[in-house]
Design a protein around this nucleic acid. Structure first.
Lengths: 225, 225
DNA sequence: ATTACTAAGACACGAGTAT
DNA sequence: TATACTCGTGTCTTAGTAA
């Protein structure tokens, strides 16, 4: 967990524009932003570097700073947290996205997890996933809200000496009556906007979907599942 | 300035849903969320109360907490800061809103500030303001971006023994060629979604605008003004 | 000008405990 | 059970200063 002080330091650096580019600033300046001395700012900065949140290099008049991927993710987490906090409480979480061509690997995994999915979701999944790309900000927030709701966890297992991790699922309804689930693989795709759907049927064929068609998903709360 | 610790405390409480309703929690629980002891959580909470960010009342099994307006604003500030930080750098800030009926007091103030506006903006303002209500999230973010850009400050003055404060302005273009300015009065309207426009002409008549008509404003960067 | 070390002082933390 | 007090301990901060 990132400490409050480190987080504030990160936020101050980001405020200078370090998310999109490298920025040059002095420790005195950073200290002023944080309301601490130059020395403390220097130390705080060093902490962020040690934690792998910031890259620092030296320049004649100041320090060149750049947020790392992890640093940016840290800020994104808080942004999403705040968005979720301010989102009006809703009964329904609705996600709108566009049908996207997958990498084809989905089918392989669905096949391996088929029995587990059957037990957890109550249906035998069609061997393939439908990939949905979230485009607008509203749906992106809806996805965050979904991820803050209690997930359905499909336990991992070992198969032929290989370990398959837990899979996080969220039940959704597609159209009026098709039950499906969004599955989220463990390996965190760097805040990917692509959702993978499994369903008891071939959604593409059943709904006559083509790439770039719009699809609407309604998240089903766990307690109602 | 809110300290990092206080801010984190606020954020933790908000995460429990205290933005929309009152929540009950123990100081032990809060401490666990913050990674500190029950005693420290208690003290942090007291700091937030002293700072006017949280309202606290006692209950048998825990503490009833509610964020104050100021506490919510504090979180909003960070949310907006993060949104601005993550927004892709753009050449143009575009705000779309709907024409709204004003309170009529705008004209009075424009009249009093007329000379000052003339000097700062380069045009004599039509005696009246056009009120524009921002509706969608995207424009709301655009407004935040605008507010993070360097403002044009019309200095205040004393007139007949009464003090008139500074006025913050942002130049905008309405349509293709009408120069106007968004004026923001000092007294902070609680994160109001209403913008007040001054222009050298009667925008309502010139553009044939009626209430609820959509209007598009393009913010003019100061260095290009 | 910078950054960052050392050392002394301030202050925050948590154990114990009263309520 | 709670919250919140005191107080000893230890960490964090800053002034001074080196590099």
């Amino acid at each position: 967990m990132t400490s409050p002080e480190m987080w504030f330091t990160l936020y101050a650096i980001a405020g200078k524009g370090a998310v999109h580019r490298r920025v040059t600033m002095t420790t005195r300046e950073l200290g002023a932003m944080l309301g601490v001395s130059q020395q403390t700012a220097s130390r705080r900065l060093a902490e962020c570097v040690r934690a792998g949140l910031v890259l620092k290099s030296h320049s004649v008049n100041g320090t060149i700073l750049q947020l790392t991927e992890e640093g940016i993710r840290e800020l994104e987490r808080v942004l999403q947290g705040l968005e979720a906090v301010f989102a009006p409480p809703r009964d329904e979480i609705v996600i709108v996205g566009k049908v996207t061509e997958g990498l084809g690997e989905g089918a392989y995994y669905v096949d391996i997890y088929a029995q587990k999915f059957q037990e957890a979701l109550g249906f035998r999944p069609f061997p393939g996933t439908l990939n949905v790309r979230v485009i607008d900000e509203e749906s992106r927030r809806a996805v965050n809200m979904m991820k803050k709701s209690p997930p359905l966890i499909v336990p991992g297992f070992v198969h032929e000496g290989r370990t398959f991790g837990d899979v996080i699922c969220y039940r959704v309804k597609v159209g009026e009556d098709i039950n499906a689930a969004i599955v989220i693989a463990q390996r965190t795709h760097h805040s990917s906007d692509i959702l993978e759907l499994v369903a008891p049927v071939n959604l593409r064929r059943k709904l006559g979907l083509r790439n770039d068609d719009t699809i609407t998903l309604r998240v089903v709360p766990l307690h109602r599942a």
